[in-house]
Write a protein that binds this DNA or RNA. Structure first.
Length: 822
DNA sequence: AGCACGCCGACT
DNA sequence: GTCGGCGTGCTC
């Protein structure tokens, strides 16, 4: 028998191994195996399929051993991987690396031991060799990292090689487990002292000499109550304010009065539900939407819930989730970004407590591995997790009994993975996954993507509108500040219109909060020579350097290169150098001088870098410790604040101007999303949009919250130019350090692909940033017209890529296909 | 991707 | 003379 194995290497295809006779019964698809790979490497891989026949007379190797008794991946998950590698033009290994936490991807580690025939004649050894041999007489085996600790990393490999050649040592490959169980100590009363007399006498003796020990013992008995013989407690729970550093407790253990035992501790945390789901009361509008969603599920169509900001989508989700759980099924809840999860988690845990688990890239590998283990062993018991909230990568969780998939904020661009492969869109992949498992899927957004909206219009998705805000809140009033008018009349103070400043003052006077949105494009602050226009650029990338005030340095956003701020121009030696552009930092400063009494905080990449920074800012804002919050996209994403009276959008134009067919859509979504933060309770909120193009359609539609009109317009535009959803795009990113070879290779590839026919090739073109980390870039954009045959065209395209890649002339060029690029 | 092999410049 | 730099080729 032969097994096709997926290995964590970015090479196309599976690797075929012989299944040894004694393993024939146990090797099935979805199981992990250890296989030899290359001259001296062992890898763990996943069996994709087992077959009886194998053509070709290749020299196949044998499977070494098995890591699992039963599959860790359900059948549908292997189908999902298969679909993904074909759809997104990547290798199974790339999917495996994205899907499995590292605890499930074991690698071999070289271990050395003394050669059995070595006669222990140490005189033939050098000093360093002697140290290694001596260490091997104490502990039988050493890993390479242990050897490196003994003699240092320099020349280690050669030394070991020489020892092996001289038959002093032998080496072997062993699989090492990277997962380490988290443990804790539990303390209990030792058996002799379960006898009350013994206990009493020891307490009496302590009252004279070891007062602290008695105190701890008393504390233990107090917490244990009648259960004291079987009571076990952690140090932290026993002595919360551990001022003794635990030494007294340790003394009790060493005297044999108490017993310490090490037990495994879950990293997944413990959360109690605070409310019963019976307390989930939906408004009539929500109930209607819920009913409508169910009818969509009955039609076996993906459901698109288009609920305006503040309409209470989460409550509807919770209602649906509670029902799925009650059937003993699991729920997968995908969110665009880690930052958002904590809010949603909090709300879901109110109802579902421990049943809710989180999974995203911010989790440690050990945490991920533990959750995977729990899922693989899922038995639908009360204490098992049922709801999995996570970012894209949660799609790969091997749920054994999934009953519902939710993709929230389905319009969000961060649902698409860009690097590394697989470059998948979590929404589209989730729709496919739902179809594979034949279970319902719900997509939710206040501003659905053009793709999804089009699918809803065409009947492919079932559309559920929810146009009413929850409770008494109404949609905010949107006002336009015409910046060209303001500029002409010189009424504006720097970047702020009088309208916006008045409204801010107004809000502050009423002790209400303000959010100021400045998008990322306007975020970068550069340095420019006033005399000749020179600006410092990154030596490795084709971008200007961004000024960072906190470190007073110029920095490259692509490769991290840093330099100090030049005092004169490198071109003309002029000293007239100044900063241009205005980012959140500058906004924060300027607002501080305009509103000296207000407490202003900033939320952007810089201020949310540390683990809890994001949550801290949100908490401060929620509790009214911040009057004005200045931020990028981050402030627009699903945050629920109740006292926000005003939202200001400083520079709508820079969002509209970006040269990309999705820029209008993105700009409109940002405006609507950030506007949605205003006026979440009875009082109507206000939004001020500053723009130089007040009559632009996009601005007009945004003012009226007119999603449908905007997207009807937008779809008409897309159709005119043949952009998605009226075509499919594949972008091939070409990279090389050699710009000439890159130019030739990418040109050649574009020509080859064009020759396939049935598609349109644009480029090769220079991307906006044409060089990153000393590598030059070209983009080839392929438009596939609507109709059948995508699969065949795609495989032809990747065939062409492989041919070009294989030709010796272009071997310095790398190609990365990106299907449905963003 | 990782690892071995192989061919040239900087040190004991 | 060796160490170790990374260019090249291969992995069922």
């Amino acid at each position: 028998m032969f097994a096709d194995v997926i290995l964590p290497v970015p090479l196309p295809g599976f690797f075929t191994y012989i299944v040894p006779d004694h393993l024939q019964e146990n090797v099935v698809a979805g199981i992990r195996v250890v296989v030899p790979f290359g001259p001296r490497r062992l890898l763990s891989g996943v069996v994709a399929s087992v077959r009886e026949e194998h053509q070709g007379n290749d020299h196949l190797k044998e499977i070494n051993s098995l890591l699992d008794e039963k599959p860790i991946l359900p059948d549908y998950m292997l189908q999902f991987w298969d679909w993904m590698m074909h759809y997104y033009l990547c290798t199974p290994g790339e999917i495996m690396m994205a899907a499995l936490p590292s605890g499930f991807r074991l690698e071999s580690e070289t271990k050395i031991m003394l050669h059995p025939s070595f006669n222990r004649d140490m005189s033939i050894l050098s000093d360093k060799e002697y140290l290694v041999a001596e260490a091997l007489t104490f502990s039988e085996t050493l890993t390479l990292s242990e050897v490196s600790e003994i003699i240092g990393p320099r020349g280690m490999l050669n030394l070991i090689k020489s020892l092996i050649e001289r038959n002093v040592i032998v080496s072997s490959e062993e699989m090492s487990d990277t997962f380490s169980e988290k443990t804790t100590s539990l303390f209990s009363l030792n058996v002799p002292y379960h006898n009350e007399d013994n206990l009493k006498s020891i307490l009496d003796s302590f009252s004279k000499r070891a007062y602290k020990q008695m105190e701890i013992l008393m504390l233990f008995l107090q917490k244990a109550g009648n259960e004291y013989p079987s009571f076990r407690i952690t140090r932290k729970d026993l002595i919360p304010d551990d001022s003794y550093g635990g030494s007294a407790l340790q003394a009790l253990v060493s005297k044999g009065i108490m017993v310490e035992e090490t037990v495994p501790l879950s990293r997944l945390g413990d959360f109690k539900a605070k409310k019963s789901t019976a307390e989930l009361i939906l408004s009539p509008a929500q109930m209607e939407a819920e009913e409508n969603i169910r009818s969509g599920f009955r039609l076996k169509k993906p459901v698109l819930l288009h609920g305006v900001t503040g309409s209470g989508k989460t409550e509807i989700y919770a209602k649906l989730i509670s029902e799925v759980i009650s059937q003993g099924k699991q729920v997968l809840y995908i969110l665009p970004e880690i930052a958002l999860t904590s809010q949603i988690i909090g709300r879901l845990r109110t109802f579902f407590g421990n049943k809710v688990q989180v999974f995203h890239s911010g989790y440690s590998e050990n945490q991920k591995t533990e959750l995977w283990n729990r899922i693989v062993r899922f038995e639908a018991k009360e204490e098992d997790p049922f709801v999995f909230v996570g970012a894209r990568s949660a799609l790969f969780l091997p749920l054994t009994n999934p009953g519902l998939i939710i993709v929230d904020e389905e319009h969000d661009h961060s649902l698409k993975q860009y690097d590394p492969a697989p470059r998948y869109h979590a929404r589209d992949a989730a729709v496919k996954l739902a179809a594979l498992i034949n279970q319902p899927i719900l997509l939710g957004s206040a501003t659905p993507s053009a793709e999804s909206f089009n699918n809803a219009l065409s009947g492919k998705y079932h559309l559920v509108p929810l146009q009413q805000r929850f409770g008494k809140s109404t949609l905010p009033e949107v006002l336009i500040a015409d910046m060209s008018h303001e500029m002409k009349n010189r009424t504006n103070k720097s970047h702020y219109s009088t309208l916006l400043l008045d409204k801010i003052q107004n809000a502050l006077d009423q002790n209400l909060q303000v959010i100021i949105f400045q998008n990322r494009r306007g975020f970068s602050v550069r340095i420019v020579c006033e005399t000749c226009g020179w600006y410092p650029g990154c030596p490795h990338c084709d971008v200007s350097l961004t000024y960072h005030k906190a470190i007073h340095k110029l920095k490259c956003h692509y490769c991290g290169y840093q330099m100090s701020v030049p005092s004169y121009c490198a071109e003309c030696n002029s000293k007239e150098i100044r900063t241009v552009g205005f980012g959140t930092q500058k906004v924060e400063e300027e607002l501080a001088s305009l509103f000296p009494k207000a407490i202003i905080r900033r939320m952007d990449h810089d201020t949310t870098r540390t683990k809890n920074a994001f949550q801290t800012i949100i908490d401060d804002f929620e509790n009214g410790r911040i009057n004005i919050l200045v931020g990028t996209q981050m402030v627009s994403k699903g945050l629920d604040f109740s006292k926000v009276a005003l939202v200001g959008i400083l520079d709508a134009d820079s969002m509209m101007a970006f040269p990309d067919f999705r820029s209008s859509e993105r700009c409109f979504q940002h405006i609507l999303q950030v506007s949605g933060r205003a006026g979440r309770q009875e009082k109507q909120g206000t939004v001020v949009i500053q723009t130089y193009q007040p009559h632009h359609d996009l601005i007009r539609f945004a003012c009226n919250h007119d999603y449908s009109r905007f997207f009807e317009n937008e779809l008409a535009e897309r159709m005119k130019f043949g952009y998605p959803p009226y075509s499919r795009l594949i972008r091939i990113v070409c990279k090389s350090k050699d710009n000439n070879i890159l130019a030739q290779a990418s040109f050649q590839l574009a020509r080859e692909i064009a020759s396939i026919g049935g598609l349109k090739v644009l480029g090769p073109e220079y991307p906006v940033v044409a060089r990153i980390k000393t590598e030059y870039l070209r983009h080839i954009l392929i438009k596939l017209a609507p109709g059948k045959g995508y699969a065949s065209l795609k495989s032809q395209i990747s065939q062409k890529v492989r041919v070009i890649q294989a030709s010796p002339a272009w071997k310095k060029v790398k190609f990365f296909p990106d299907v449905d690029p963003y």
